[in-house]
């Protein structure tokens, strides 16, 4: 197993791939979360009927495979002559994908804040904004955070699909090395280990927070 043609240079190449994975994930999750919070608040405030068009739109991102979304997004930007590089296209599609899931998480978080608590705040003279800021946000964050961490990790893993657009992320970097070195198992195991090392501690943190902040305890 240690008898390998893999050089430090190649490990660096894998590292660059991992950095690309993290960069795509970071941008997409950041943008997706902001959109998710906005959509989630709209969804909660507007009620199920008025927010139907928005929900239908977001539902598409949860009902169509990400691979198809990426290819379609890329074809669409090419037809519209936007000339986006694959990185931008990937981030835009992944952000919407993230937002679709995040909206539900945020809505669930807001809904979990007892109405009585919010009324109490409002009767102390708080405005809607203050109520959202000082009462709903802290409580909803507690409820939503474990699910949000799960979502972030999900997006990190799903971001492997951007290789389809030619972006050299972790999995694609491994495939390139496999092509050159013909040691599929060894290189794929390293690739899997890198994903695991990134994902596992954060997943554990999410599990811990979930237990710690669980409203039932």
């Amino acid at each position: 197993m240690l008898d390998t043609a893999l050089t430090w240079n190649d490990l660096l190449f894998l590292g660059q791939g991992a950095a690309m994975t993290l960069a795509v994930t970071a941008v997409s999750v950041a943008a997706g979360t902001i959109m998710g919070i906005i959509f989630g608040v709209i969804r909660f405030q507007a009620g199920p009927i008025w927010s139907m068009p928005l929900m239908f739109f977001l539902d598409i991102f949860r009902s169509v495979p990400l691979l198809i979304q990426l290819v379609l997004g890329n074809a669409l930007q090419s037809i519209a002559k936007l000339g986006w590089p694959p990185f931008t296209t990937s981030c835009v599609v992944l952000s919407l994908y993230t937002a679709a899931y995040c909206t539900e998480i945020v809505r669930g978080g807001i809904a979990s804040v007892p109405v009585t608590t919010r009324r109490a705040g409002r009767s102390l003279g708080m405005t809607w904004g203050q109520d959202m800021r000082y009462i709903v946000a802290p409580l909803a964050t507690r409820v939503s955070l474990p699910a949000w961490i799960g979502l972030t990790l999900g997006v990190m893993k799903d971001s492997a699909l951007v290789l389809w657009l030619g972006l050299i992320e972790l999995l694609r970097a491994s495939q390139i090395l496999v092509t050159r070195l013909q040691e599929p198992l060894f290189i794929l195991l390293i690739c899997g280990a890198i994903y695991f090392i990134i994902s596992f501690p954060i997943a554990r943190l999410g599990g811990y927070l979930e237990r710690r902040w669980s409203p039932h305890d």
């Binding site: 496999v178 599929p184 198992l185 596992f200």
Partner: peptide, 22 residues
């Protein structure tokens, strides 16, 4: 833990090319 912490694409790729190695 492996199922939940690595991409599905990786798992499928492994099932084909990883096992193929054996």
């Amino acid at each position: 833990e492996v199922a939940r912490n690595t991409p599905a694409l990786f798992q499928i790729y492994m099932a084909h090319f990883g096992l193929g190695n054996f």
